[in-house]
């Protein structure tokens, strides 16, 4: 049943650019990008239990790295997307080394401060980032071909999203994934079991930054402009909301949260007068009736129906 659902979803994703307009494909690109960023948030928060609020900063580093490396060196997009992920991961490793000395709310505040500082850097490092004028991103390239439209970029975005999803599943099922969850449940117990807690947390932090950086690289494939305003705390909160609404601690929750919440946000744009109220109501309803997330709620409901 699950395999059939996955096949149908994959077929729908492959058929999308042939059956819809560029606008729908743009939304799909954006949702797939946020799916990857949410997977990163899932690794650090859902799996390893570390409260990081710097996802927008790593996403921003990814966008600027990809955009600038593509323009400066003429790199094909697989290289610039990979560079985006690696640079974010290295910065994540450095910041994680400092921030992970703290826990809980202090860790959240430290990573929040890093996010704010990074936005300031992007805004003020005018000679490199374009500063307040924003950065025009040159079209992505591969073998001399330019990706000029959303439909042209979509296959690349989809393949990267599937690869990142596969990587997240592999990580989750690996020894490292088990170490993440052990650290999340109890650092003392994990240590007693021989899990190197400090390096495990650091790896989770760097992997999360890598996912966000790749998300930034994906954004640079179909977008032509980035402004530091788009990389503020609001974006981190959006990602956090997606992961929590989808279901904290589950990959399906991270993916579903990104897609469902991204779609809700876009649909609410059509009802400007009421959207803030509806948005707030949806969040309250989710927290009241589906505190474990949308997918856990759906799973439990289906289970009850089946038993009945």
């Amino acid at each position: 049943m699950r395999s059939l659902a996955l096949l149908v979803a994959l077929a729908a994703l492959v058929a999308l650019p042939f059956a819809t307009t560029g606008y729908v494909v743009y939304l799909a690109n954006l949702l797939l990008t946020f799916t990857v960023i949410c997977l990163g948030m899932h690794l650090v928060l859902g799996e390893a239990g570390q409260f990081s609020l710097a996802q927008a900063a790593f996403y921003g580093i990814g966008i600027y790295t990809s955009g600038l490396s593509g323009a400066a060196f003429g790199w094909p997009f697989p290289c610039s997307v990979l560079a985006a992920g690696l640079v974010s991961a290295v910065v994540g490793l450095l910041i994680g080394g400092l921030a992970l000395r703290m826990r809980d709310i202090y860790l959240a505040l430290a990573t929040f401060a890093f996010g704010e500082a990074m936005q300031w850097v992007l805004m003020d490092w005018t000679s490199v980032t374009g500063g307040p004028n924003g950065l025009h991103i040159a079209p992505a390239r591969l073998f001399g071909l330019q990706l000029l439209t959303d439909k042209q970029a979509y296959p690349a975005v989809l393949v990267i999203a599937i690869l990142m999803l596969g990587l997240a599943i592999l990580l989750s099922r690996s020894r490292l994934g088990r170490a993440f969850r052990a650290v999340r449940e109890s650092e003392v117990a994990a240590m007693a079991m021989g899990v190197p807690v400090k390096s495990t947390k650091l790896i989770a932090f760097a992997l999360s930054a890598f996912f966000a950086g790749v998300g930034g690289g994906m954004f640079a494939l179909y977008s032509t402009y980035i402004h530091p305003d788009s990389l503020g705390f609001q974006t981190t909160i959006l990602v956090l909301t997606m992961v929590v609404v989808g279901g904290l601690g589950s990959i399906a929750g991270a993916v579903g949260g990104a897609i469902v919440f991204g779609l809700i946000s876009e649909l609410l744009r059509q009802t400007p007068s009421y959207q803030e109220v509806i948005y707030g109501l949806i969040l309250i309803v989710f927290m009241m009736f589906a505190p474990k997330g949308l997918f856990a709620f759906l799973g439990e409901s289906f289970g009850r129906l089946r038993r009945a």
């Binding site: 307009t21 560029g22 606008y23 743009y26 788009s230």
Partner: peptide, 15 residues
């Protein structure tokens, strides 16, 4: 918002 504005523009032009 830049992302929302681009989405609006693409909807108006392409859809």
């Amino acid at each position: 918002d830049a992302n929302d504005l681009v989405a609006a523009v693409k909807k108006l032009v392409e859809q």
